[in-house]
Design a protein around this nucleic acid. Structure first.
Lengths: 242, 242
DNA sequence: GGGTTATCGGATGTAGGACGTCCGATGCTC
DNA sequence: GAGCATCGGACGTCCTACATCCGATAACCC
């Protein structure tokens, strides 16, 4: 009807266009050599520069924010983000919970991956571990034991233990990934109920892992970690089987 | 100023509200026990049900689509998605390229994680590998050698080799993650230029890995993989150092 | 009557405008 | 000079209108 049929490009699927728009924004950041923390153009400027409406643009921007590429501050502006894996964690959590309704397959796969990372990298981490870092690990163990003695749950302390275990590697990506796995597992753990796990036993298991690390026994540490994950896997299996 | 100060909830940051909205949508899916492939309510229905405008809702929807939680089909509807890690790959690729401008730190971390996964899981994969799967691996090696002999690059064949190496584990999450890492590395590889790598040498290295796997020598396979990644790491280091 | 094509309805995609909300910065008052 | 009010810019939300796409129904032709 309209006479403006001069649309040049054969329209791809809408999804492809949205992804192209995201790529364009990222390319723009790279081209202008913006660093983490640097400000981006305003939404209005971007919508003009990229030739799309502000609404369409915002949808792409929100995705980039979720991916941890940019940071949006209300009333101030948009900036290149340092790092953020929260969104990924949410997505994986959702999949894990969804899978629990069936066989818990994805949840178990998640544990497998985490196990490979932890038992595979514990040796490297021990190689470059400082005495201070070793002490901070024991501190985390102590905290778990205290909480266990008080009968309280120690999700945070447990996560902290594992984080400190691999802090020496100085690999943010790894820490973030493990954080994601942890977050997912924690959510799933809530879903499958408090369980009848023995807090003291769990704390003792972590004490053993610490002992192996302190002794410099890589093989033993790796093996203990493996057994730790076997327990987790068994618990998920029980939850699914009921 | 206005007398309508009856707003019940103390307004959190806009970002928190958006995340809450995403969670609400995912909760809605879980509550209604929707399975992968099942249709979601329409945008209009959702915007009414969740008490937000269609525009705001769509921003959350697009994020969920990017996270692989839902699938949106233009003119048809929205559905619970099976799985999709493309968005994550894009985000990580961006970070990797961004980091190349500095020390290439994140790119190297990415290689570390992938190395831990591959060398850590090769043993488990060999445990459950069938003769057919082993044969398919050799096939991939052969393809690499043919391409190398022809002087052509073999990015796809290389990726396929690594994929088949861990296919026996039947762990989709792992395959997806490795796919992400591969995609990122490939993009970075393009960025740092074709390099002066020796195709024949690379192909031969993969042949060696295959040989160790075929011989059932786990330690050797793991070690060869480690050396393979050392080469990749060196190449990134060279690209950054120029 | 069976297969093909045209039309229709519904759902998502895009655009633009209007207004609310938040934040930092400027300038004023005390 | 310190504290506070105001201002302007930028993001957040909503609404309306129209474009585009897809599947399904219904009309059509053979």
């Amino acid at each position: 009807m309209t006479t403006s049929g001069v649309v040049p490009q054969a329209r791809f699927s809408a999804q492809a266009r949205l992804r192209a728009l995201q790529s364009d924004i990222m390319e723009l950041i790279l081209e202008r050599e913006l660093e983490a923390g640097d400000p981006l153009p305003t939404e209005s400027e971007l919508s003009v520069a990229l030739g799309v409406g502000r609404n369409t643009l915002r949808e792409s921007l929100k995705v980039l924010q979720a991916l941890g590429v940019i940071e949006i501050r209300h009333g101030f502006g948009m900036f290149v983000a340092p790092s953020n894996f929260d969104a990924l964690a949410d997505g994986l959590t959702f999949r894990g919970r969804l899978s629990l309704r069936h066989q818990g397959l994805e949840a178990l796969q998640l544990v497998d991956v985490r196990q490979a990372l932890e038992s595979g990298l514990i040796g490297s981490s021990m190689d470059v571990m400082t005495p201070e870092q070793l002490a901070s690990i024991e501190e985390a163990v102590k905290q778990m034991e205290d909480l266990a003695a008080a009968g309280e749950n120690f999700v945070a302390a447990d996560a902290e233990f594992h984080r400190r275990l691999f802090e020496p590697l100085n690999n943010e990506l790894l820490i973030n990934l493990m954080g994601v796995f942890w977050k997912v597992y924690r959510k799933i753990h809530v879903e499958i109920g408090p369980g009848n796990e023995d807090l003291m036993k769990t704390a003792a298991m972590h004490r053993n892992i610490y002992a192996a690390v302190a002794a410099g026994d890589k093989a033993s540490a790796s093996e203990l970690l493996n057994r730790h994950f076997d327990g987790i896997r068994r618990r998920i299996g029980e939850a699914v089987g009921d």
